[in-house]
Amino acid sequence: MADPASALTRGDDAATASGYEEHPPRMGFFTDTSVCIGCKACEVACKEWNEVPDDLVGWAGSSHDNSEGLGANRWRHVAFVEQRAPLGTQQANFQRDGGDFRWLMESDVCKHCTEAACLDACPTGAIFRTEFGTVVVQPDICNGCGYCVPACPYGVLDKREEDGRIFKCTLCYDRLGEGQEPACAKACPTDSIMFGPLEELRERAGDRVQELHERGMGEARLYGEDPGDGVGGAGAFFLLLDEPEVYGLPPDPVVTTRDLPETWKAVGIAAGALLAGAAACFAGARR
């Protein structure tokens, strides 16, 4: 039987680790926020395809974001950040305070982590790793226990109140099965959302960061691309133009079940010590 610890930490080939003997290359998203125009086509295309209910929250006035973030009824979410800072060599020419201004936009989505805490926490087997290396909640299995909700380091998973089950991005599992790209990637007018084999995307992302640096956008960086990060690298990673916190993303996410093996080991040791101690007490008591 495979060592649970190594299964959790087995690197890139998440699908093989999940028992698929033959499988296609791992597929994912590279979301390049440097070309995002904040149009929210991704949000709508996703809802239409996946028949996600509408959730009119009301006017939030958080720049042009009138929703609360990713949730059971929002699997793509566009964040808007207005800052008094320059963006590379752009000239905003405002007459106030130095004149700099930039408006960052980012389409957020489930990260489909290599080391997925939601997958670890799910007791029913509803959440599983697909042959594409993606992480999917199976609505026919999910019992709505909600263990996965606090497990996710990004706060992606959420319960659909009127339904009772947990819902999140499936990376359009049904479309992948037909060789079609996810609805959001297809709709995106500027190709900010790119879909394809993760390896290729990582390469493309590396080139893009370099290109942006050469064009004077020194703050461009990748987020979630590194297989050595706290979640083993994300299946959906990003090019950001500022710190992750600015976008509402955790700066150093770690798979929350990372310490489970250590924890169980410690529990084992403690239990063993307790038993040994109890045995010692009773053994001594007999004399």
């Binding site: 039987m1 495979a2 649970p4 299964a7 699908a15 093989t16 680790a17 999940s18 028992g19 698929y20 003997e21 997958l119 087997g125 509803a126 599983f128 790793r129 697909t130 042959e131 999917v136 199976q138 609505p139 026919d140 299995i141 359009c172 599992y173 049904d174 479309r175 099965g177 037909e178 079609q180």
Partner: peptide, 22 residues
């Protein structure tokens, strides 16, 4: 191969039979 039932072994019938409307 999926001893921990995190992937292939946990795939439901619905998931296996999933088709895209397109």
């Amino acid at each position: 191969e999926d001893r921990l039932a995190r992937g292939a072994a946990a795939k439901s019938r619905r998931s296996a039979e999933l088709r895209a409307r397109t």
